[in-house]
Design a protein around this nucleic acid. Sequence first.
DNA 1: GTAATTGCAAATACTTTGCCACGTA
DNA 2: TACGTGGCAAAGTATTTGCAATTAC
Lengths: 141, 141
Amino acid sequence: MNPIVQEIIQSLRKSGLRRTKALEELITTLLESKRPMTLAELATSARLADQCDKVTVFRLLQRLAEHGAVRRLGLHERAAYFTLLIPGKHSDYLICTSCGSIKAIEAPCPVHQLEAEIREKTGYRNLYHELEFFGVCPKCA
Amino acid sequence: MNPIVQEIIQSLRKSGLRRTKALEELITTLLESKRPMTLAELATSARLADQCDKVTVFRLLQRLAEHGAVRRLGLHERAAYFTLLIPGKHSDYLICTSCGSIKAIEAPCPVHQLEAEIREKTGYRNLYHELEFFGVCPKCA
DNA sequence: GTAATTGCAAATACTTTGCCACGTA
DNA sequence: TACGTGGCAAAGTATTTGCAATTAC
């Protein structure tokens, strides 16, 4: 099994979470995905569909978010999107408003400077940001 | 009545929308608000609560969004947020993850350069972005 | 054995649609 | 008059909770 998955689970176990098959598969699925996924997508994905109930995936995501292992994103859909939170990694996204495709943006994020300013000037704690670009992709146009 | 509201309604009338009291009050409310608002907030706001049904507000917002007069935002809540789209104006937001307060950020948006690059390199049309900062505000911390 | 985890069912929250009456132009 | 608009009720979609059974450690 993927050593990064092992590492994440190890860290979670210290917080009292138990190592279950569903947890393992969920983290693996999120890690393999190159974009955020919805609860419905996760629950019906190859690794999880026959593994456990949708509600279980929901509760796992909830716990993982509480422990800072995943982040819940907006991304403009009615359903919430989830992504693994890996220290040092950050993604902004490019989303097609027509077909809904989501791509991570390669370019370095231009927001860190402003984020630092806001942190200083406003005194907000645990600051992070979410940046998305919306438009109609070439295929749809 | 506010001349900007008049102007917006004029422009909408050219697209076939009719001037109704509810439309007027909705646009005025959105214009007066310094932050995006949810459907529920709008429907129960001073100007609209006794004016019309929630469903009517919903449909108005829908029409306005279709005609590019309002934009629907994510902002991480379960409910969608709406904001008037005024040419030349753009806001990024600072949101408290604890109390949910939303503030527009004064500083100039640092993303336009990247947005231009993406427009060129990817060929996406009608590109725009949404940028939010999340953190715990001083009051909540 | 104990506490975390799970499944299933049901409750909630928010959004969206249908249908017919009404108002604007 | 004609067609956009409004209200009310109901359906749809996504999320969240309750509780008893199960599993990890």
